[in-house]
Design a protein around this nucleic acid. Structure first.
Length: 298
DNA sequence: GCCCAGGTGAAGC
DNA sequence: GCTTCACATGGG
C-alpha cells in the first residue's frame, strides 16, 4: 500500500541518519524500516515523502506521528538563539527533524549506544531484533523484517544470550532495565505526563541510564523538546563554538545549554550534532575545518 | 598495536 | 563535589 505526504521542509535522509533511530537502512534513495509492527519504505522526492507498507493501512496516524509530519518546524527554528553557530547549523541541516519514537525501543537502543559508533549501534539493534523480535510482514524480495523485541521478551533472556548480539558490557544494563519495565516498576507511557525533571528522575533509576541517555529518551520519544543530551560530539561542538580556549566541564556545558538554547533546546542539539558529524567528513585530511564563527575567526 | 566510539557506575581523592 | 578507571567490541 502506498501513500504520498507533502510535509514542508523535511529532509528525510538527514532525519533518519542523524543518530536518533538506528533501524533504518538506505536502499538507493529509499529508506526501509519497521515502525511498531509495520514494515515501511520511505522515499523522498520533490517535496514529498512516499510511504509504502507491506499490508493495507486504513489510518496513517502512526506514521504521521512517528515522522512528526504535522510539526511546525519554523516555529521551532524561531526559538533558536540568534547566534552564528546556530545559523550555520540550521543553514547546513535545512529540513532536519526530530522523530517521535516508541519509548521502549528508544530507551533500549540508547542503553546499547554507550561508547559505540552509530554504525555499530545499528548492527547491535539489528542482531537484537533478528534474534528476539517478532517477524512482521514484508514485501517479497526485501530482507525479513522484525519488530523491536518487547521488554518481557528481553527480560526472560539470559545475559550470555544477549551478548551474542555483540552488546558486551551493556548486556546486564539492558537486562536490568527490561526487567524493571516488564515488572511495571517503571511505566514508560506515564513519562510524558510528568514534568521533565520528574520523568528524568525516574529514568535515572534504571541501570545503564545516566543523564545523557535519559535526555535522549525524553527528547526522542517523550516529547520533551527542551531535553538536551550532552554527548562527546556536543561537548566538542559547544567547547569549540562557544568556549574556545577555556576548560569547561560537562556539567557546566549542560547548564549553559539549558539556559542558552531555550524551550526547543533538544532540537538545537540535534542540529549541532548533525552539523558536526556531517561537516567533518568533507574536511580535507590533515587539516581541521573551521566550523562556524566564534569571534576569533570572524 | 594504538585510539576512539551519541556513557555509566564504582572507586578514589 | 570532582577525576579516573573498567567495561566489550569493532573501525580507522
Amino acid at each position: 500500500m502506498k501513500r504520498v505526504f507533502s510535509p514542508p521542509d523535511y529532509d528525510l535522509a538527514a532525519t533518519l541518519s542523524s543518530g536518533q533511530s538506528f533501524r533504518w537502512r538506505r536502499h538507493g534513495h529509499s529508506w526501509d524500516g519497521v515502525i511498531g509492527t509495520q514494515w515501511a519504505r520511505l522515499t523522498p522526492g520533490g517535496g514529498t515523502i512516499t510511504a509504502e507498507t507491506a499490508t493495507p493501512v486504513a489510518d496513517w496516524q502512526w506514521l504521521v506521528r512517528y515522522l512528526q509530519l504535522e510539526a511546525d518546524l519554523n516555529a521551532v527554528l524561531r526559538t533558536f538563539p540568534d547566534d552564528e553557530p546556530m545559523r550555520a547549523a540550521v543553514k547546513e541541516c535545512h529540513g532536519l527533524r526530530l522523530l517521535q519514537q516508541d519509548p521502549w525501543e528508544c530507551l533500549a537502543s540508547f542503553i546499547l549506544s554507550s561508547t559505540k559508533q552509530i554504525v555499530q549501534i545499528e548492527q547491535i539493534t539489528r542482531l537484537l531484533c533478528e534474534r528476539y523480535g517478532q517477524p512482521v510482514p514484508a514485501p517479497a524480495g526485501v530482507a525479513p523484517a522484525f519488530a523491536f523485541p518487547s521488554p518481557s521478551r528481553l527480560a526472560s533472556a539470559g545475559e550470555a544470550d544477549l551478548r551474542t548480539c555483540k552488546m558486551g558490557f551493556r548486556a546486564p544494563y539492558l537486562l536490568g532495565t527490561a526487567r524493571a519495565v516488564d515488572s511495571g516498576q517503571l511505566d514508560l507511557e506515564q513519562l510524558q505526563r510528568m514534568s521533565l525533571e520528574e520523568a528524568r528522575e525516574r529514568l535515572l533509576q534504571l541501570p545503564g541510564v545516566g543523564r545523557k541517555i535519559a535526555d535522549c529518551v525524553l527528547l526522542f520519544s517523550c516529547g520533551f523538546a527542551r531535553a538536551f543530551p550532552v554527548d562527546v560530539w556536543i561537548m566538542k561542538a559547544l567547547r569549540h563554538l562557544y568556549f574556545p580556549r577555556r576548560r569547561v566541564g560537562r556539567k557546566r556545558l549542560q547548564q549553559f545549554a539549558e539556559e542558552h538554547f531555550g524551550p526547543c533546546g533538544g532540537y538545537a542539539q540535534q542540529y549541532l550534532f548533525h552539523y558536526m558529524r556531517t561537516r567533518r567528513k568533507d574536511a580535507p585530511p590533515g587539516r581541521k575545518q573551521s566550523i562556524g564563527v566564534t569571534g576569533t575567526n570572524a
